[in-house]
């Protein structure tokens, strides 16, 4: 009992010292009553507030269950159960050039494994970066900015068999490339 307590404290110290923000893997989202209500996807950035978390993003009007990075860049940040989307706070609405209505939202929740949040974005994608090199065994690899965040998942889906990526690897590399693409040239 005594020993376990020390270990817990040791783990707790770094968590308190650093404000960890990026999901380093897919994390289960819990309601304030600790019920499972969704998934926070790897790479999504959250703000911590006394053990609770806030996620900001964009949702399509009528299809609020997927939270995107922006109305232009459809990087999936989280997926929620329909019921839970009622807790979203809408701060802005707009219609894009294609006639789709979008809402900028914030939502608060708890995370099942908040230890898997990291502060440094650069720690996130080492494995995916290495996996992506495999594409170069057939053709010249593209710089991430050469395709948009919207295009990358489709491109990866098209090409995955050639690289021998599993479904999981395909998704992981796609998301990595989506975030890299945002950085531009």
């Amino acid at each position: 009992m005594f020993k376990k307590g020390i270990v817990l404290i040791l783990f707790a110290i770094p968590t308190m010292l650093f404000s960890k923000e990026y999901a380093s893997k897919n994390l289960e989202i819990l309601s304030m009553k600790n019920e499972p209500v969704g998934v926070l996807y790897k790479g999504a950035k959250v703000n911590e507030n006394k053990g609770d978390f806030t996620l900001s993003g964009w949702v399509m009007d009528g299809n609020e269950y997927i939270i995107f990075y922006s109305s232009k860049d459809r990087i999936k940040l989280a997926r929620l159960e329909d019921e839970f989307t009622k807790n979203m706070k809408v701060s802005e609405t707009k219609e894009d050039v294609y006639g789709v209505k979008w809402k900028k939202i914030d939502i608060d929740f708890k995370l099942k494994n908040s230890k898997a949040l990291v502060t440094n974005e650069n720690e996130l994608w080492n494995k995916e970066e290495e996996l992506y090199q495999r594409c170069g065994s057939c053709h010249k690899t593209f710089e991430a900015y050469e395709y948009t965040p919207n295009q990358w998942p489709s491109i990866m889906k098209t090409m995955k068999t050639n690289a021998g990526f599993s479904k999981k690897e395909t998704k992981a590399v796609s998301v990595y490339l989506q975030y890299e693409s945002l950085k531009g040239k």
């Binding site: 299809n63 459809r74 050039v97 294609y98 948009t148 919207n150 295009q151 491109i155």
Partner: peptide, 18 residues
């Protein structure tokens, strides 16, 4: 088409590309 959009800016086939 909402759940499985294409990778275009609009998520649809772009006969006109902005």
């Amino acid at each position: 088409p909402l759940e499985n959009p294409l990778g275009t800016p609009s998520g649809r086939i772009e006969i006109f590309s902005r």
